[in-house]
Design a protein around this nucleic acid. Sequence first.
DNA 1: GATTAAACGGAACGAGCGCCCCGCTTGAAC
DNA 2: GTTCAAGCGGGGCGCTCGTTCCGTTTAATC
Lengths: 213, 213
Amino acid sequence: MRTADGTAEPAPPTRAARPLRADAQRNRTRVLEAARRAFAAEGLAVPLDEIARRAGVGAGTVYRHFPSKEALFEAVVVDRLERLAEVGRAALAEAASDAAAGPAFFGFFETVVADAHEKMDLADALSGAGVNLCEATQIAGRDLADVLGALMARAQAVGAVRTDVDLTDLHALTLGAVTAERRQSDAADTTRMAHRIGRATRVICDGLRPPAA
Amino acid sequence: MRTADGTAEPAPPTRAARPLRADAQRNRTRVLEAARRAFAAEGLAVPLDEIARRAGVGAGTVYRHFPSKEALFEAVVVDRLERLAEVGRAALAEAASDAAAGPAFFGFFETVVADAHEKMDLADALSGAGVNLCEATQIAGRDLADVLGALMARAQAVGAVRTDVDLTDLHALTLGAVTAERRQSDAADTTRMAHRIGRATRVICDGLRPPAA
DNA sequence: GATTAAACGGAACGAGCGCCCCGCTTGAAC
DNA sequence: GTTCAAGCGGGGCGCTCGTTCCGTTTAATC
């Protein structure tokens, strides 16, 4: 369920949903867009009033559309997680040939790191900073983890990744790479394009390769 | 300036300081001890009232001894940074022989990571989470960074560490390793001894070695 | 245009926390 | 024992922020 502007809208309630009033629909879109930007830039730390202000609505209006700040956060982050998992599944398809398994894994790993690096909400979600993430987020997160795990297993099977690391290690290292990358760009504030990864991530990728190859 | 119980006390003010009253001295020690424990466990996030409660004093008493929460935090963290730097200098002395330069660097790197892993205040300080750290902390931090840089330079000179990483990268990777380690021990809550490092850190260390050695 | 329910927005509430104030307590000096 | 300044502690202030409430506005329908 994706609209023309690329934003995800929740599926209409299962039973006979009256269409939203025009202004309500417009405000909902504005709030989601403002939330996407704000959460990406500052993570969960951004005050909800600030999101409302940037969306040009009152705080009450935000609560009309989302029952809590966390629900709004999840609406943003679940979408991001699902898109990432989709990219991962494409990489997994490419990893069918032995020669491609390694590059497919490392490419996707770098994509995840780059994405979480520029979307702070993703980093927060991966690190569990929000503490209580609801079911939807957990499912989307597990989905992403599964894809990453499958890619790693393939890469390990063809000898592109050391076999003494598991999915838990990989999750930890992903978070570590994001942290390191964020630190990096604090120092040298160059805008980094997706997939154009930093030296810290390169070091971690090299560490993931079998030693003494 | 270190007392019998291993705690660091600030040097007496330069000019004619009247000695503290006995109860004041005792309370000051209690506050520092409680702060050390609390900051180690929860980082800067722990409320000051909680530290006062654990120390068995009122919040006002804490403010009699330290002008702000940050000052108390720094009293704890500067001590930690200085001790680490001291360990680093010892490692640097060992790194005189070429064969020892690599192990000295990696050993110290692991020590820093392990230390920051079990002392959340250190991790906060390294990541600059406190935002405004005063001069004392900056000096101590720079001192530590210098030692780490010297050790890395030695290790690079003898070919134990790849030469395409600099001190900024190392700082970022240190933080990344701490983050990854913390994530690890969330999953499997085993108490980890200092120097008994985890797999994530091992991967990062391997990544720091020259590729295709 | 009249009607009405949905939607709006911002004032207000309450919780958490850093920090200060001030009346009471107590160690130290004589 | 008396004196008194240093020290104590906890109540309270001010601020931030998530959430709710309610009087007002407005889109939709006729």
